[in-house]
Amino acid sequence: IPIKTLEQDKQTDCKFLYSVCEKYGLAMKVFGEKIIIFDEARYESAAPVLTLQYEDCIRYTYNSTMAGTYTGAKVRYSDPGSSKRHYVSVGSGSRIKEMNVEADGAEDARRKAVAALNNANKKAVTFSATVMPREELIASRCIEIRGLGTPDGVYYLDKVTSKIGQNGTSQQSIEAHLVGYRLNDAKVQLEVETEKKEDGGGSVYTVQKGDTLWSIAKEQLGSPLRYAEIYDLNKDVIEEAARGRGKKDSSNGHWLVVGTSLQIPEATETDGEQ
Results as ranks from 00 to 15, higher is better:
19 S>K: 08
169 T>A: 14
230 I>M: 03
156 Y>K: 00
155 Y>S: 02
26 L>M: 12
244 G>C: 03
200 G>W: 07
251 S>N: 15
61 T>F: 13
74 K>V: 14
17 L>V: 10
207 V>R: 03
44 E>T: 06
177 H>F: 09
157 L>M: 00
228 A>T: 12
153 G>N: 08
227 Y>W: 12
176 A>I: 06
6 L>F: 09
174 I>N: 04
24 Y>D: 02
249 D>S: 13
66 M>I: 15
19 S>W: 04
207 V>W: 05
35 I>T: 15
260 T>H: 03
180 G>Q: 04
252 N>R: 08
251 S>P: 05
63 N>D: 14
98 E>S: 13
49 V>G: 12
71 T>D: 12
13 D>W: 02
109 A>P: 06
245 R>H: 15
134 R>P: 01
127 F>W: 00
248 K>V: 13
26 L>R: 12
8 Q>N: 06
222 G>C: 09
219 E>C: 05
244 G>R: 03
187 K>F: 04
29 K>M: 08
269 E>D: 03
136 E>G: 06
44 E>H: 02
118 N>I: 08
120 A>E: 06
224 P>Q: 07
181 Y>T: 10
200 G>K: 07
113 A>K: 00
190 L>I: 12
184 N>R: 10
179 V>W: 07
11 Q>F: 06
236 D>T: 10
161 T>F: 00
217 A>W: 03
244 G>Y: 09
9 D>A: 12
111 R>D: 02
151 P>E: 05
12 T>F: 11
229 E>N: 12
22 E>Q: 14
265 P>W: 09
268 T>H: 09
236 D>S: 13
170 S>V: 00
86 H>I: 06
73 A>R: 00
234 N>G: 01
191 E>K: 04
69 T>F: 02
81 G>E: 13
37 I>R: 03
153 G>K: 05
137 L>G: 07
192 V>L: 07
54 Y>C: 05
192 V>D: 11
65 T>G: 11
206 T>V: 11
208 Q>W: 02
201 G>Y: 15
197 K>N: 14
114 V>T: 11
211 D>M: 06
256 L>A: 09
194 T>Y: 08
10 K>L: 11
181 Y>A: 11
69 T>I: 06
203 S>E: 08
171 Q>S: 14
231 Y>A: 01
246 G>Q: 05
62 Y>L: 01
269 E>L: 07
32 G>W: 02
201 G>W: 12
145 I>G: 02
42 R>S: 11
270 T>G: 07
1 I>G: 11
37 I>V: 14
27 A>S: 10
78 S>G: 04
173 S>C: 03
107 E>Q: 09
148 L>G: 03
33 E>Q: 13
168 G>Y: 07
191 E>R: 05
50 L>M: 13
165 G>A: 13
110 R>H: 02
155 Y>G: 00
173 S>L: 06
122 K>R: 14
246 G>L: 04
211 D>W: 01
161 T>S: 11
265 P>L: 13
108 D>P: 07
